[in-house]
Simulated assay, not measured.
Amino acid sequence: MTEHTCASCGARMPPYDIVNAASSDGTYRLLCSRCFNEHIARWADVVGFKHPQFTPVRLLDADGRSHEFHFRSLLLGDQLSLEAFELAGNHESEGYRFQILGEPQSDPFVLLGKLVQKMMRALSMEHLHEDASGLQVAGTMVRGRIEWNGVEGGRLPCVVIDGRRVEWNDFGAILMAFEGWQFRLELLDPSDEA
């Protein structure tokens, strides 16, 4: 995994712990999440903000597969974002990803508890299953996340369902089992409960 150097503290950090932050002069700098949070705390006058850090955790999904989640906290001015994500393969869009928002002065361990509960609820559901004919919808509802498919100049997304990357054309093929059915598409913010 390629590491990046924080422009503020000089620490070498993995890509998931780096923020491309805009400066007041219109330039951008790569900052580690700790330096980014300290900068935003000063800018937003958040007194006494302490950058929370959490050890990765492993949780089981509905099939009993283990998933390791890393955490990142970002101060967004008037909100604290706590994110959990898997490091799956070389694609940033692979794997499960969760987010919860709280007040900047929130107890980070209370937010972490709420986030882990959200993660456990999502992991307990299976939306896709695989049989001899390939991937199929497990019921009549599919929850997932829309991502960039990684093709420069491409116009098609991919989706991540049950922590699994599914290309758009493959997702369309999965949906053909429901030809003639109606559907409802609802788009939710990553911090909302899906």
Results as ranks from 00 to 15, higher is better:
residue 94 E to A: 10
residue 93 S to E: 12
residue 161 I to G: 01
residue 47 V to I: 12
residue 88 A to I: 04
residue 141 M to I: 07
residue 125 M to S: 14
residue 134 G to Y: 00
residue 47 V to Q: 15
residue 148 W to Q: 09
residue 98 F to H: 10
residue 59 L to E: 11
residue 100 I to D: 12
residue 123 L to E: 06
residue 64 G to Q: 06
residue 100 I to Y: 15
residue 142 V to P: 04
residue 118 K to M: 07
residue 92 E to F: 13
residue 80 L to V: 04
residue 120 M to Q: 15
residue 119 M to N: 06
residue 67 H to V: 04
residue 94 E to P: 04
residue 86 E to L: 06
residue 129 H to C: 08
residue 55 T to V: 11
residue 146 I to C: 13
residue 52 P to T: 15
residue 43 W to Q: 09
residue 138 A to V: 02
residue 135 L to W: 02
residue 84 A to C: 10
residue 51 H to S: 12
residue 140 T to G: 10
residue 154 G to N: 06
residue 126 E to A: 13
residue 148 W to D: 12
residue 154 G to M: 08
residue 74 L to V: 10
residue 94 E to T: 03
residue 147 E to N: 06
residue 72 R to Q: 14
residue 87 L to Q: 14
residue 113 G to S: 15
residue 82 L to N: 06
residue 88 A to D: 02
residue 107 D to I: 04
residue 63 D to H: 03
residue 160 V to K: 02
residue 160 V to Q: 00
residue 116 V to D: 12
residue 58 R to L: 11
residue 70 H to K: 08
residue 142 V to C: 02
residue 129 H to I: 01
residue 87 L to E: 13
residue 141 M to Q: 12
residue 138 A to S: 13
residue 95 G to K: 03
residue 108 P to W: 03
residue 97 R to Q: 13
residue 60 L to V: 05
residue 118 K to H: 09
residue 80 L to N: 10
residue 101 L to I: 02
residue 73 S to Q: 09
residue 69 F to N: 09
residue 52 P to F: 09
residue 80 L to W: 08
residue 89 G to I: 02
residue 120 M to P: 12
residue 86 E to K: 04
residue 150 G to M: 00
residue 156 L to P: 05
residue 50 K to E: 14
residue 118 K to L: 13
residue 106 S to W: 05
residue 49 F to P: 02
residue 58 R to E: 15
residue 155 R to L: 13
residue 144 G to K: 01
residue 80 L to A: 10
residue 64 G to V: 10
residue 132 A to R: 05
residue 126 E to V: 07
residue 58 R to C: 14
residue 130 E to L: 01
residue 61 D to Q: 02
residue 115 L to P: 03
residue 113 G to A: 13
residue 69 F to K: 07
residue 40 I to A: 00
residue 58 R to G: 07
residue 62 A to Y: 07
residue 83 E to M: 15
residue 135 L to T: 00
residue 80 L to I: 02
residue 105 Q to H: 15
residue 145 R to F: 05
residue 62 A to I: 05
residue 132 A to L: 14
residue 137 V to G: 08
residue 102 G to R: 13
residue 84 A to P: 06
residue 75 L to N: 02
residue 79 Q to R: 14
residue 92 E to W: 09
residue 67 H to Y: 03
residue 75 L to W: 01
residue 120 M to H: 11
residue 76 L to K: 08
residue 90 N to Q: 15
residue 52 P to D: 14
residue 48 G to D: 14
residue 111 L to A: 02
residue 159 V to Y: 03
residue 79 Q to W: 09
residue 44 A to Q: 07
residue 45 D to C: 08
residue 72 R to S: 15
residue 65 R to L: 13
residue 106 S to R: 10
residue 69 F to L: 11
residue 114 K to W: 15
residue 89 G to C: 04
residue 108 P to Y: 03
residue 161 I to R: 01
residue 134 G to R: 00
residue 46 V to D: 02
residue 71 F to A: 07
residue 128 L to M: 01
residue 137 V to R: 03
residue 75 L to A: 02
residue 143 R to G: 11
residue 103 E to P: 09
residue 71 F to K: 07
residue 84 A to M: 08
residue 42 R to H: 01
residue 117 Q to A: 14
residue 60 L to M: 06
residue 159 V to E: 04
residue 139 G to M: 04
